[in-house]
Protein backbone atom coordinates (compact mmCIF):
# COMPACT_ATOMS: atom_id res chain seq x y z
CA UNK A 1 0.00 0.00 0.00
CA UNK A 2 1.74 3.14 -1.18
CA UNK A 3 0.96 6.73 -0.44
CA UNK A 4 -1.93 8.57 -1.98
CA UNK A 5 -2.43 12.15 -0.91
CA UNK A 6 -5.32 12.76 -3.28
CA UNK A 7 -7.76 11.57 -0.61
CA UNK A 8 -6.73 14.37 1.73
CA UNK A 9 -8.49 17.34 0.07
CA UNK A 10 -11.95 15.81 0.47
CA UNK A 11 -11.39 15.83 4.23
CA UNK A 12 -10.18 19.44 4.38
CA UNK A 13 -13.37 20.47 6.13
CA UNK A 14 -12.93 17.87 8.85
CA UNK A 15 -9.29 18.81 9.41
CA UNK A 16 -10.08 22.52 9.40
CA UNK A 17 -12.77 22.07 12.00
CA UNK A 18 -10.32 19.99 14.05
CA UNK A 19 -7.74 22.75 13.75
CA UNK A 20 -10.35 25.25 14.93
CA UNK A 21 -11.02 23.16 18.03
CA UNK A 22 -7.29 22.78 18.66
CA UNK A 23 -6.93 26.57 18.62
CA UNK A 24 -9.96 26.94 20.90
CA UNK A 25 -8.55 24.43 23.38
CA UNK A 26 -5.12 26.06 23.30
CA UNK A 27 -6.56 29.53 23.92
CA UNK A 28 -8.89 28.37 26.70
CA UNK A 29 -6.28 26.22 28.43
CA UNK A 30 -3.66 28.93 27.83
CA UNK A 31 -5.78 31.53 29.62
CA UNK A 32 -6.47 29.11 32.46
CA UNK A 33 -2.76 28.31 32.77
CA UNK A 34 -1.85 32.02 32.76
CA UNK A 35 -4.28 33.20 35.43
CA UNK A 36 -4.02 29.91 37.30
CA UNK A 37 -0.24 30.29 37.26
CA UNK A 38 -0.43 33.75 38.82
CA UNK A 39 -2.93 32.55 41.40
CA UNK A 40 -0.88 29.48 42.32
CA UNK A 41 2.29 31.56 42.54
CA UNK A 42 0.75 34.07 44.93
CA UNK A 43 -0.79 31.30 47.02
CA UNK A 44 2.48 29.36 47.10
CA UNK A 45 4.42 32.42 48.26
CA UNK A 46 1.99 34.23 50.53
CA UNK A 47 -0.73 31.73 51.39
CA UNK A 48 -1.40 30.29 54.83
CA UNK A 49 0.61 27.12 55.38
CA UNK A 50 -2.59 25.06 55.49
CA UNK A 51 -3.17 26.09 51.87
CA UNK A 52 0.49 26.15 50.86
CA UNK A 53 1.19 22.59 51.91
CA UNK A 54 -1.49 20.83 49.85
CA UNK A 55 -0.58 23.13 46.99
CA UNK A 56 3.08 22.07 47.15
CA UNK A 57 1.97 18.45 47.09
CA UNK A 58 -0.28 19.11 44.10
CA UNK A 59 2.50 20.95 42.22
CA UNK A 60 4.97 18.19 43.05
CA UNK A 61 2.61 15.51 41.71
CA UNK A 62 1.80 17.49 38.58
CA UNK A 63 5.40 18.29 37.74
CA UNK A 64 6.60 14.75 38.32
CA UNK A 65 4.05 12.84 36.25
CA UNK A 66 3.07 12.71 32.57
CA UNK A 67 0.31 14.95 31.32
CA UNK A 68 -1.48 11.99 29.77
CA UNK A 69 -1.70 10.28 33.15
CA UNK A 70 -3.11 13.49 34.64
CA UNK A 71 -5.71 13.70 31.91
CA UNK A 72 -6.87 10.18 32.75
CA UNK A 73 -7.06 11.12 36.42
CA UNK A 74 -9.09 14.25 35.78
CA UNK A 75 -11.41 12.73 33.20
CA UNK A 76 -12.16 9.50 35.02
CA UNK A 77 -11.69 10.95 38.49
CA UNK A 78 -14.36 13.58 37.92
CA UNK A 79 -16.78 10.93 36.68
CA UNK A 80 -15.91 8.87 39.75
CA UNK A 81 -16.99 11.65 42.12
CA UNK A 82 -20.14 12.21 40.12
CA UNK A 83 -19.11 15.16 37.97
CA UNK A 84 -19.71 14.26 34.35
CA UNK A 85 -18.06 17.08 32.41
CA UNK A 86 -17.96 17.22 28.64
CA UNK A 87 -14.65 15.88 27.39
CA UNK A 88 -13.75 19.32 26.05
CA UNK A 89 -14.05 20.91 29.49
CA UNK A 90 -12.13 18.09 31.16
CA UNK A 91 -9.40 18.46 28.53
CA UNK A 92 -9.14 22.22 29.00
CA UNK A 93 -9.02 21.84 32.79
CA UNK A 94 -6.36 19.12 32.56
CA UNK A 95 -4.14 21.02 30.14
CA UNK A 96 -4.74 24.33 31.91
CA UNK A 97 -3.90 23.04 35.38
CA UNK A 98 -0.84 21.17 34.14
CA UNK A 99 0.66 24.28 32.58
CA UNK A 100 -0.56 26.53 35.39
CA UNK A 101 1.75 24.59 37.68
CA UNK A 102 4.69 25.16 35.35
CA UNK A 103 3.83 28.86 34.92
CA UNK A 104 3.48 29.18 38.66
CA UNK A 105 7.06 27.97 39.17
CA UNK A 106 8.29 30.61 36.73
CA UNK A 107 6.25 33.40 38.29
CA UNK A 108 7.24 32.47 41.83
CA UNK A 109 10.93 32.76 41.01
CA UNK A 110 10.23 35.96 39.14
CA UNK A 111 8.30 37.50 42.05
CA UNK A 112 11.18 36.72 44.38
CA UNK A 113 13.56 38.41 41.94
CA UNK A 114 11.65 41.72 41.90
CA UNK A 115 13.93 44.39 43.30
CA UNK A 116 13.44 45.30 46.95
CA UNK A 117 13.37 48.95 45.87
CA UNK A 118 10.09 48.33 44.09
CA UNK A 119 8.40 47.33 47.33
CA UNK A 120 9.93 50.34 49.05
CA UNK A 121 8.88 52.68 46.26
CA UNK A 122 5.31 51.43 46.41
CA UNK A 123 5.04 51.25 50.19
CA UNK A 124 6.49 54.74 50.53
CA UNK A 125 3.65 56.08 48.42
CA UNK A 126 1.24 54.48 50.87
CA UNK A 127 0.22 51.40 48.88
CA UNK A 128 -0.81 48.46 51.05
CA UNK A 129 0.88 45.06 50.76
CA UNK A 130 -1.93 43.73 48.62
CA UNK A 131 -1.92 46.79 46.36
CA UNK A 132 1.85 46.56 46.01
CA UNK A 133 1.51 42.94 44.99
CA UNK A 134 -1.40 43.58 42.64
CA UNK A 135 -0.16 46.70 40.87
CA UNK A 136 3.63 46.59 41.16
CA UNK A 137 5.12 43.19 41.90
CA UNK A 138 2.94 40.74 39.98
CA UNK A 139 2.78 42.79 36.75
CA UNK A 140 6.56 43.10 36.74
CA UNK A 141 7.11 39.45 37.61
CA UNK A 142 4.77 38.35 34.83
CA UNK A 143 6.43 40.59 32.24
CA UNK A 144 9.84 39.19 33.13
CA UNK A 145 8.68 35.65 32.33
CA UNK A 146 6.82 36.35 29.10
CA UNK A 147 9.44 34.46 27.03
CA UNK A 148 9.49 31.24 29.09
CA UNK A 149 5.72 31.36 29.54
CA UNK A 150 5.50 31.69 25.77
CA UNK A 151 7.49 28.47 25.51
CA UNK A 152 4.95 26.84 27.81
CA UNK A 153 2.18 28.07 25.51
CA UNK A 154 3.93 26.45 22.56
CA UNK A 155 4.29 23.21 24.52
CA UNK A 156 0.62 23.47 25.42
CA UNK A 157 -0.40 23.73 21.78
CA UNK A 158 1.46 20.54 20.94
CA UNK A 159 0.34 18.73 24.07
CA UNK A 160 -3.26 19.56 23.22
CA UNK A 161 -3.01 16.56 20.85
CA UNK A 162 -3.13 14.40 23.99
CA UNK A 163 -6.72 15.27 24.78
CA UNK A 164 -7.74 13.27 21.70
CA UNK A 165 -7.02 10.23 23.85
CA UNK A 166 -9.87 11.12 26.23
CA UNK A 167 -12.13 11.75 23.25
CA UNK A 168 -11.94 15.52 22.86
CA UNK A 169 -12.69 16.56 19.30
CA UNK A 170 -9.69 18.38 17.91
CA UNK A 171 -7.13 18.09 15.14
CA UNK A 172 -5.67 14.72 16.08
CA UNK A 173 -9.08 13.13 16.57
CA UNK A 174 -10.30 14.70 13.33
CA UNK A 175 -7.39 13.06 11.53
CA UNK A 176 -8.26 9.76 13.20
CA UNK A 177 -11.84 10.03 11.96
CA UNK A 178 -10.64 10.54 8.41
CA UNK A 179 -8.27 7.60 8.84
CA UNK A 180 -11.03 5.30 10.09
CA UNK A 181 -12.86 5.92 6.84
CA UNK A 182 -9.94 5.90 4.42
CA UNK A 183 -7.34 3.68 6.15
CA UNK A 184 -4.67 6.20 5.19
CA UNK A 185 -2.90 7.00 8.51
CA UNK A 186 0.33 8.30 7.00
CA UNK A 187 -1.37 10.87 4.81
CA UNK A 188 -3.76 12.19 7.41
CA UNK A 189 -1.38 12.27 10.35
CA UNK A 190 1.07 14.11 8.12
CA UNK A 191 -1.67 16.54 7.13
CA UNK A 192 -2.52 17.04 10.80
CA UNK A 193 1.19 17.58 11.56
CA UNK A 194 1.31 20.24 8.85
CA UNK A 195 -1.68 22.01 10.43
CA UNK A 196 0.00 21.92 13.85
CA UNK A 197 3.16 23.26 12.28
CA UNK A 198 1.34 26.22 10.76
CA UNK A 199 -0.55 27.02 13.97
CA UNK A 200 2.74 26.73 15.83
CA UNK A 201 4.43 29.21 13.47
CA UNK A 202 1.59 31.67 13.94
CA UNK A 203 1.75 31.28 17.71
CA UNK A 204 5.51 31.79 17.74
CA UNK A 205 5.18 34.94 15.64
CA UNK A 206 2.48 36.24 17.95
CA UNK A 207 4.59 35.57 21.02
CA UNK A 208 7.57 37.34 19.50
CA UNK A 209 5.42 40.40 18.92
CA UNK A 210 4.18 40.24 22.48
CA UNK A 211 7.74 40.05 23.77
CA UNK A 212 8.72 43.08 21.73
CA UNK A 213 5.74 45.00 23.03
CA UNK A 214 6.83 44.43 26.59
CA UNK A 215 10.46 45.24 25.92
CA UNK A 216 10.31 48.90 26.98
CA UNK A 217 8.20 48.25 30.06
CA UNK A 218 10.73 46.02 31.80
Amino acid sequence: MGLDFTVVPSYFGVLLMGAGWTIAITVAAGLLSFFGGIFFAVVALYGHWAIRLPFRLFAWLFMGTPLLLQLFLIYFGLIQIGIDLPAFVAGVIGLGLHFAVYNSELIQASILAVDKGQYEGARTLGLSRLQTLRYIVVPQAVRAVVPPMGNNMIALLKDSALVSVIGVMELTLAAQQAISRTYRPFEFYLAAAACYYVINLALEAGLRRLERRFQASR
Binding site: G117, G121, I136, P139, Q140, S217, R218
Partner: peptide, 8 residues
Protein backbone atom coordinates in the same frame (compact mmCIF):
# COMPACT_ATOMS: atom_id res chain seq x y z
CA UNK B 1 18.09 54.16 42.88
CA UNK B 2 14.84 55.90 41.88
CA UNK B 3 12.65 52.81 42.32
CA UNK B 4 10.45 53.80 39.43
CA UNK B 5 8.03 51.09 38.33
CA UNK B 6 9.49 49.77 35.06
CA UNK B 7 6.22 48.27 33.83
CA UNK B 8 4.38 51.59 33.95
Amino acid sequence: HFNLFPHL
